[in-house]
Design a protein around this nucleic acid. Structure first.
Lengths: 196, 196
DNA sequence: ACGTTAGTGACACTGCGTGCCACCAGGCAA
DNA sequence: TTGCCTGGTGGCACGCAGTGTCACTAACGT
């Protein structure tokens, strides 16, 4: 039997589409490149493009679903006594721990997502998945429900902090995503000591 | 002479469109209602709809630009010695200080924006305007540039906190937007004491 | 009377996303 | 071999968002 997670022909075309998309979008801009052009560059039809990615924007995000799943796993495997914000920070750092070879790719993706308005808009939908996972973890640790103010608040503010950290790294204000994340979470956990 | 801010014929049709849009979107869902149906309900053509609002989503946001402008004014008129987070919280509360008659309208708007995926996505673009204003204020107070990590971080996390507060109010977990905002900012400014 | 200007409606066009059908490979059974 | 099923694909057509363009009308000042 074949494993469910094995790479079928679908995943190969997905990878080809993704490469073509990143290349064309960074060169000409996201809105200036029709999905058909990406499909042509990837050697497949427009229809197949939308079978591999539900949205033109999703071609930029790669396997973000697996990303979120890893985050959830890391959070659930957190040491018992650890402060919640520390766990969340560590999980964010771990999930975004790319090797030096993959950093340019991350940079390219983030530059698009944080710069292009249409992708910025779409990102909110993806962020919501992350927020949901983090909120559930916080609710677990504090004995509340994921819909309560505190879990939602922690989830959404930590994610916002992570985004700001990535922006700073992208602007070359921080040497690495990890240090940027640590600095941002230090400010957040301390109630913004730098403001005093 | 007529004042530049006077209500011309354009603003009247805008208001009619907005009412029709809120009504139809809450009844049938945002994605299920074409812009043309809203235009028909407002007694104008599809083309005129898109002259009054650049996007179908924008019909839900009312005069959000003025909202942001008021926020900027409030922040620049902040007492000198006041802690930055206190100023930002106060500005958010003040800007969202609706009378009892207008609360249902705010509820209706927020319910759509926070519930419908397409509007949720579009909200990121609007939030960016708010973040920019707050980041500039923080940069002013701390002597940095708006693009630095700290101003960005404070701006985006406070805005995220405000959003969480509104969600809690919408879910009837909080009696009013003001109390929800105060609770959220108290957690944020204290480094989340409720987590200990 | 005239031209100017702002608001509007009508039409056409690009592009996203989707439903539908036809086609073609590969595996499996008779 | 033949027949059947299944998954990936391409082609086509549709609804809808948003935009450019043109023509029409009403209000205005000269």
């Amino acid at each position: 039997m074949t494993e469910t997670l094995a790479t079928g022909p679908r995943d190969l075309t997905r990878a080809r589409i993704e490469r073509a998309a990143l290349e064309l979008f960074t060169r000409h801009g996201f809105e200036a490149v029709p999905a058909e052009d990406v499909a042509d560059a990837a050697g497949i039809s427009r229809r197949t493009f939308f079978r591999c990615f539900p949205t033109k924007a999703d071609a930029v995000w790669g396997d973000f679903g697996g990303h979120v799943r890893r985050l959830a796993d890391l959070l659930s495997a957190t040491p018992a006594g650890q402060p919640v914000l520390t766990s969340i920070c560590a999980a964010y750092v771990e999930v975004n721990d790319y090797g030096p070879d993959d950093l340019p790719l991350l940079r390219q993706r983030l530059r698009l997502i944080l710069t292009e308005p249409a992708l910025q808009a779409h990102s909110q939908v993806r962020y919501a998945e992350v927020d949901r996972v983090v909120a559930e973890h916080v609710a677990d640790r504090t004995g509340g429900r994921p819909g309560d103010l505190l879990p939602r608040l922690v989830a959404t503010t930590t994610r916002a902090a992570a985004t700001a950290a990535f922006e700073a790294w992208l602007a070359d204000d921080e040497p690495s995503p990890a240090t940027a994340l640590h600095r941002a979470f230090a400010e957040l956990a301390g109630g913004f000591p730098a403001l005093r």
